[in-house]
Design a protein around this nucleic acid. Structure first.
Lengths: 222, 222
DNA sequence: GCGGTAATTTTGATTAGTCAAAATGTGGAA
DNA sequence: TTCCACATTTTGACTAATCAAAATTACCGC
């Protein structure tokens, strides 16, 4: 039986929620986090997760949290793959701005056939990342591990390239774009200041930008 | 409140069902026909149509049938527009065969945004018909009336051009394609024979094909 | 004008997904 | 160790969409 959009959304949220601040491997995602990621009441998430557990898609530990099984992992990876291929397709082929693709992809990811995704993927040259630099799982669900350095951890006064922006908020994305901090841009972190909770960056044409620590943590570099 | 996929499907079925063998204008579609077009039980259609009537999308006459109101007409036309734009996009841009597009479009039509449809429409040059020759309603929901002559009514031994194929069945479409009877092809009807219930056609390279009356009625020409 | 057949509507029940609010469990602070 | 705050689960109820089967209506032929 093919999974409903709802089931796909739960699996995706667990997938993304578990890999987010992945300190330990195999960590359990607390139900509260899952519920708020999905915008549903806590009890709703509990109920749904229990039925997912019965289908063998997740492992559920009452009062502890939830994690994907191998089967759930595979399914979730396919949803994420579809989402990210679609995002890149919308930007490259359909002329969307990178801040406009998320909602559209959110809808399309549940109805697009494997065939169409593969056509897009082929047309795009089997890309490894989407417009935000998020890695695209391959057709088997495998993601290439990318080393994670953020603006908070990379060496100072050293040229680095922005590889990924971890946030889908439209206004944040527009800010990033207007200051030439999109993936692919070359920059240098000049200074980090704990007192002012900010990071100063030298970017394109030696322009300076100062951004908050929280925002800086969302920019990954290499 | 935006209509669910289910509501969209009901409206579309009424739209297509009413225009099908449109003898009288404003004719009521019988509930049985609607139910079987949607593949639901008759009682289900009755229930749903009553709620559509309460929303002002259809006019419902118990025991007689159902017709779209102006509002329902508009909504239905938009669904059909999305469907047909998507079909053409899949063929022209994504390299689909014309017999492969229906199911994919059936899913996509309910989730694609107006913006994406307009991008596709623009990319395709504001087309007036889809790959089967079905007319595409414009952004206001208006369809250009096309004069309807079928292989059963057009003059004999006169060059005509196939403009439309009214059937979504895969094997029928493949048959049509393999005998060079797709929209755009130039042909001539040589003979109609009531006894054998068939029509003989001279097509590309003077090749002859004989097809049944029922099939012939689905090929429209100009 | 009277039946009977076929279409239609009603009825009662089911499934998926959801919420609000009450009940319960967990883990940290004192 | 005891208790409290907070996270989590349970409960009861609701909505949309569906079906099967019983009840009803329409209309055609005689």
């Amino acid at each position: 039986m093919l999974p409903s959009s709802t089931v796909e959304n739960y699996l995706k949220a667990i997938y993304l929620g578990s890999s987010a601040a992945q300190t330990q491997p195999q960590r359990l995602l607390p139900m509260g986090q899952l519920a708020s990621a999905l915008g549903v009441a806590p009890g709703t998430a509990t109920t749904m997760v229990k039925t997912l557990a019965e289908s063998g898609l997740v492992k559920y530990e009452p009062y502890a949290g939830v994690a994907l099984t191998a089967a759930g992992q595979k399914l979730a990876a396919m949803v994420v793959r579809r989402h990210r291929v679609i995002e890149l397709f919308l930007v490259r082929v359909m002329g969307y701005g990178w801040d406009e693709v998320h909602d559209e992809a959110e809808q399309l990811e549940h109805v697009v056939s494997n065939r169409l995704i593969d056509r897009m993927d082929e047309m795009l040259g089997r890309p490894e990342v989407d417009p935000h630099g998020d890695p695209i799982p391959d057709a088997r669900g495998v993601v290439k591990p990318q080393q994670a350095q953020s603006l908070l951890t990379c060496p100072l006064n050293t040229r680095v390239t922005i590889t990924r922006v971890i946030d889908q908020d439209k206004s944040f994305l527009r800010f990033i774009e207007s200051h030439h901090l999109k993936p692919g841009e070359s920059i240098e972190v000049e200074e980090r200041d704990a007192a002012s909770d900010s990071v100063r960056v030298r970017g394109k044409d030696d322009q300076r930008v100062t951004i908050g620590t929280r925002a800086a943590s969302k920019l990954l570099v290499q």
